[in-house]
């Protein structure tokens, strides 16, 4: 199955970096900050794989994110297609994913697709208890369609764990905001 011996392969990281998020297909796992590392171990492939073993580490955005299984499958599938027969995907829980890890390129891709991008995540100082916030979350964001700042939060929870729902009072369109976490 492998064509590795005939043609030089694309580095495994570059292959993994092209895999996109199943829910946000305009965004690669690399730009989302979910792809933590890709290691090529040469000559250590398992039985039936005389070549190399690739170990990919991914981290969940939210603990319950159901996209993890499909991300794993896509990584394995894409790397197999690029000639890497022995691919292992492991979960890396620490450090925990933050929306701050979404790259500039990822933010541009989100904005172009009509999403409002996250501001800086709340940081909790050391051992200080997390403060309760009983007021609607205030975010200085603009409508990704018309640019108006006259927007209102409809829900802190959206169609996927990572998004909040907004509507624009100027163009009257609803839009989604990728939450700070």
């Amino acid at each position: 199955m492998s064509t590795a011996t005939q043609t030089p392969r694309i580095p495994a990281y570059d292959v993994a970096a092209t895999v996109t998020d199943p829910e946000l297909p305009m965004l690669t796992l690399e730009d989302l900050g979910v792809l933590r590392s890709v290691e090529e171990h040469h000559g250590t492939g398992g039985p039936g794989s005389p070549g190399d073993r690739v170990e990919v580490a991914i981290t969940p955005t939210y603990t319950g994110c159901p996209a993890m299984a499909s991300m794993r499958d896509d990584l394995v599938h894409r790397l197999h297609g690029a000639g890497y027969d022995d691919v292992r995907v492991r979960v890396q829980l620490s450090p925990a994913w933050s929306s701050d890890w979404i790259t500039e390129r990822g933010r541009r891709a989100l904005a172009e697709a009509g999403y409002s991008t996250p501001g800086p995540a709340r940081h909790h100082a050391g051992d200080a208890p997390v403060a309760l916030n009983l007021l609607p979350t205030r975010r200085a964001i603009t409508c990704p369609r018309c640019g108006s700042a006259d927007v209102e939060l409809t829900s802190e929870f959206g169609a996927t764990a990572c998004k909040a729902l907004y509507r624009c009072a100027a163009c009257l369109e609803p839009f989604e905001h990728v939450k700070e976490i």
Binding site: P60, Y62, T63, L93, S94, P95, A96, W97, R122, H124, V130, L132, N133, L134, L135, P136, T137, E156, F157, K179, I181
Partner: peptide, 21 residues
């Protein structure tokens, strides 16, 4: 457990704010 907790704190902060509001 520590890693699970770090993530859970971020999530539960949203849950508690939702319930409180």
């Amino acid at each position: 457990l520590a890693a699970v907790a770090v993530k859970a704190v971020k999530e539960l902060t949203y849950h508690r704010d939702y319930a409180g509001r």
